[in-house]
């Protein structure tokens, strides 16, 4: 605007602390760190499995270390947050249609949880046999 001295308000680094929805958003985004950590953790385990029974036992001892357990507990909590928020946002992000009609959001969310249960049951069956 010509000739008018406008004021630009600075944005605090902590803009996301004051409002619940912003805070949940940043927590949701921070789940990325823990997803990356779990990938690294699983790779370490697979490497140990490849190296033999002794290495695998060593890995189980490492995994039972209290520090690692705490990190993994926090990581699992963030993964659950990721799963809940991801499933919840899917019907917003996609226009899911069946036979030309929009599928209700609740049905989209429910079907994802069915997928989660099926996959989880399969993984449990596969690794424990």
């Amino acid at each position: 605007m010509n000739g008018v001295r406008t004021y630009r308000r600075p944005i605090s680094t902590w803009w996301w602390v004051g409002k619940r929805t912003y805070f949940v958003f940043v927590m949701r985004e921070l789940s990325s760190i823990f997803i990356a950590w779990l990938v690294v953790y699983l790779l370490l385990m697979i490497a140990a499995i490849g190296r033999g029974a002794d290495a695998y036992d060593d890995f189980l001892r490492f995994a039972a270390n209290p520090v690692v357990v705490v990190v993994d507990l926090v990581a699992l909590a963030f993964v659950v947050l990721h799963t809940i928020t991801w499933f919840g946002l899917t019907p917003k992000a996609m226009d899911v249609r069946a036979a030309g009609r929009p599928v209700p959001a609740a049905a989209v969310i429910a079907s994802q949880y069915v997928g989660l249960v099926v996959v989880s049951a399969f993984v449990v069956w596969l690794v424990s046999r």
Partner: peptide, 20 residues
Amino acid sequence: GVVAAVFLPVLAFLFALAYP
């Protein structure tokens, strides 16, 4: 995002907590 939401909860629970 999809595979993390679907696969990671069970993998993390089993291999990071339940087994160790």
